[in-house]
Amino acid sequence: MTIHKEGYTTIALTVLFIMLLNAFVDYKFADLAWLRWAVYILSLALFVIVLQFFRNPKRTFTNGENLVICPADGKVVVIEETEEGEYFKDKRLQVSIFMSPVNVHINRNPISGVVKFFKYHPGKYLAAWNPKSSTENERTTTVVEHKNGTPILYRQIAGALARRIVWYIKEGDQVVQTEQFGFIKFGSRVDIFLPVGTKVNLQLDQVVKGGITVLAELS
C-alpha cells in the first residue's frame, strides 16, 4: 500500500500541527503526565486517521469491454430511474455509491472511451445522502462515450466533510477503464447515469470496490 499524492500536503500539515500541539503541552503541562499521555494518544489516532484517508492499496483490477466497473469504494445507496437534467435531459438509470470517511477515496474510470463533456460546479456541502446534494453540492460532471457509442455520465459529489474535489481529465481526453480520473478528499458520493434498461449487477446496500466490482453490463 502507498499514500496517494493528494495526501502529501494534508499529512505534512497534520504532522506539523501534532508536533506544535505536543510541544505546547509538554512545555505548559510538564507536571501533568496523564494529560500529556492523553494528548500523545489522541495525536497518534489523528495521524492514523488522516493517513488512512489517503491510502492507495494495490489491487488487481477488473476489465471488460462491455463492463461498467464501479468508480469508487463504498456502499450502493441508490438504484433508480431518474431525470438527468444537466447533459442528457431525459430518463436515465442512476446508481449512486456513498463513500464513507473510512473508504479509499480514489475515483476510477468505469469504462474506456472519449470524454465528450466535463464541467466543474462549485456549490454547497450538504450531507451526501441528501437528495439535493446531486444538484446543489460542489461536484463535477463527466460524460465518456464508449466505443460502441454509448455515453456514460458520472458525477463526483462533495459532502458534509469533503471540501475538495480533484479531477485529472478534460474534454477530448481518451480515458482507460479503471485508471484514476479523480479524488474526493474525505469521501462523499459518486453517481453514475446509464441508459434505461442497462443490466445492473448491484443491489442496494451492497459494498463495492472501485476498479474491481462490476457495476453493469452494456448491451
Rank of each mutant, 00 (worst) to 15 (best):
5 K>M: 15
8 Y>N: 11
8 Y>C: 13
8 Y>E: 14
10 T>Q: 12
10 T>H: 06
13 L>Y: 12
14 T>A: 07
14 T>S: 05
15 V>F: 07
17 F>S: 06
22 N>Q: 08
22 N>T: 03
23 A>F: 11
23 A>H: 10
28 K>P: 14
28 K>W: 13
28 K>N: 13
30 A>D: 04
30 A>H: 05
32 L>N: 13
33 A>H: 15
39 V>I: 14
47 F>V: 09
48 V>W: 08
49 I>C: 12
54 F>E: 03
55 R>N: 04
58 K>I: 09
60 T>I: 10
61 F>K: 12
61 F>A: 09
62 T>C: 11
64 G>L: 06
65 E>Q: 09
66 N>D: 12
66 N>I: 02
67 L>E: 03
67 L>S: 02
70 C>A: 14
71 P>R: 07
71 P>N: 08
71 P>Q: 05
71 P>G: 07
72 A>R: 00
77 V>A: 01
78 V>N: 11
80 E>A: 06
82 T>D: 05
83 E>Q: 15
83 E>L: 09
85 G>Y: 13
85 G>F: 10
85 G>A: 04
86 E>K: 12
87 Y>F: 14
88 F>W: 07
89 K>H: 03
92 R>E: 09
94 Q>C: 13
94 Q>H: 11
95 V>A: 03
97 I>M: 03
99 M>N: 01
99 M>R: 02
101 P>K: 05
101 P>F: 13
102 V>F: 05
106 I>M: 11
108 R>A: 00
109 N>M: 00
111 I>Q: 06
113 G>H: 04
115 V>I: 12
115 V>R: 03
115 V>K: 08
116 K>G: 02
117 F>M: 03
117 F>T: 10
118 F>V: 12
121 H>E: 11
122 P>D: 12
125 Y>L: 10
126 L>T: 10
128 A>H: 02
129 W>H: 14
130 N>S: 10
131 P>K: 06
133 S>K: 04
134 S>C: 12
136 E>I: 08
139 R>S: 00
148 N>H: 08
150 T>I: 15
150 T>L: 05
151 P>D: 02
153 L>N: 13
153 L>R: 11
153 L>S: 14
154 Y>G: 06
155 R>Q: 06
155 R>S: 02
156 Q>C: 01
158 A>N: 01
159 G>M: 14
159 G>E: 10
162 A>T: 01
165 I>R: 03
168 Y>Q: 04
176 V>F: 00
177 Q>C: 00
178 T>G: 08
181 F>K: 00
183 F>W: 04
183 F>P: 02
183 F>A: 00
184 I>K: 13
184 I>L: 08
186 F>H: 15
186 F>T: 14
187 G>V: 10
188 S>R: 06
190 V>K: 08
191 D>G: 03
193 F>A: 06
194 L>Q: 07
196 V>M: 00
196 V>K: 09
196 V>Q: 02
201 N>V: 06
207 V>L: 05
211 G>I: 04
212 I>C: 01
212 I>R: 01
213 T>I: 05
215 L>C: 06
215 L>T: 01
215 L>S: 05
216 A>N: 08
